[in-house]
Amino acid sequence: MIIEKWPKSSEKNLSDYKDTIPHIFHHNAVIVLANGVDAKIGSLSGNYEHFHEWKRPEEDEPGVVDMETLLKGICNKSNFLDLFENFIVFDDSSGELVKIIARNHQYLGVNRAMQAVEERRHRKGKLGVFWHTQGAGKSYSMVFFSRKVHRRLGGNFTFLILTDRDDLDTQIYKTFAGCGIVDNDKDPCRAESGDDLEKLLKQRKAYIFTLIQKFNREVAPDNPYSSRDDIIVISDEAHRTQYGLLALNMWNALPNAGYIGFTGTPLFKDDEITDALPLIL
């Protein structure tokens, strides 16, 4: 969709198209707004502010915000099919069904995390840190990541989504539930206590949600909750949850799990926060 005046007319043009020729969107995957120089990608249900640039085709390339970069990043065959298959979800957690398309950093970050999962034995379970700025869609990144692992790698992976606050736990659970991935009422997946967490981990659940505080019992290294190597711990706010006694209990409980951290706190090679993530980095 070519927009001559940028950006004020873009939302009006899109709205007009929806009203006058809605059938062109019946089989729509993504929408690209462009003016020949700049471009943004978004979904049918998104307002203009929910459209985003595609800044780089690969993580190690310099960022350039223009239409050419977006086209190179999403319009070659393999990338587009990957985006279509693994990076579009529908979420009704807000009470209204919306279509969510991954942003550039989510697409690149999830695919790098996928590679880490494939190499998890060589990496000894240290899957790295997925860094986000505030409002960058961290919960959706978790959804994209876990769904792609299940879809592409198969097996019986269990994702343990770990936070340190009730409100964060509820927020992330609601995102997964809104995307139709979990339903705690039909298939319990939210640990109610330390004992309940141990029981859930001894089952082959696809998803478990818990607070780090529920690893509240000392665990002997020779008596773990599970020795499986297809458990992946997604640690939200990893700079707060991956050190101390509770973290030690978790590591002893899940000695062969893979650990990936999600955080909005910048990490540097030699600072105290980074040193506190020994099982992730």
Rank of each mutant, 00 (worst) to 15 (best):
F80K: 12
K138F: 00
S9T: 03
D185I: 14
L71E: 04
I161H: 00
R103N: 10
N76V: 13
S193V: 08
K72C: 10
N223Q: 02
S227C: 12
F157D: 00
V37N: 00
P224E: 04
M142V: 05
I21L: 13
D185F: 15
P266E: 00
K269S: 01
L246Q: 05
L33I: 10
N28E: 06
I41S: 11
F51I: 12
F159H: 06
G73P: 06
N86F: 04
D166K: 15
G73F: 11
D92I: 14
Y207I: 01
G95S: 10
R152M: 14
M67V: 01
A191E: 02
A276G: 15
D38I: 01
D195S: 15
L160F: 06
E68R: 11
Q115W: 10
D82R: 13
N13H: 00
S227E: 15
K124A: 00
G42C: 00
D19G: 11
I208K: 07
K5Y: 11
I273G: 03
Y173V: 08
G178H: 12
T133P: 02
R240A: 07
I88A: 03
P224K: 12
Q134L: 12
I41A: 01
C75E: 00
I88S: 05
R217N: 10
I74S: 05
D196Y: 01
M67K: 13
A191F: 07
G46E: 14
T175M: 11
G42V: 04
N13G: 07
Q203G: 12
R217Y: 09
H23I: 07
A113C: 14
S45K: 06
N252C: 11
R56H: 08
Y243C: 08
T69N: 11
T163D: 07
G258S: 09
D271I: 03
V117A: 12
H122F: 06
D166T: 14
R123E: 06
H27L: 12
E68M: 09
Y259F: 15
F87N: 01
G244K: 09
E198T: 09
R152Y: 07
K55P: 04
S141D: 02
D270M: 07
T20M: 09
I41C: 05
E218I: 10
S10T: 03
G46N: 14
R204P: 04
V219G: 03
I88F: 07
D16F: 14
S15L: 12
N79Q: 09
L281C: 08
R120T: 01
F90E: 12
N111M: 02
S15V: 08
P255L: 07
I181S: 15
L281M: 14
S226D: 04
D91W: 10
A238D: 00
D82W: 04
S94E: 13
M114D: 05
L197P: 02
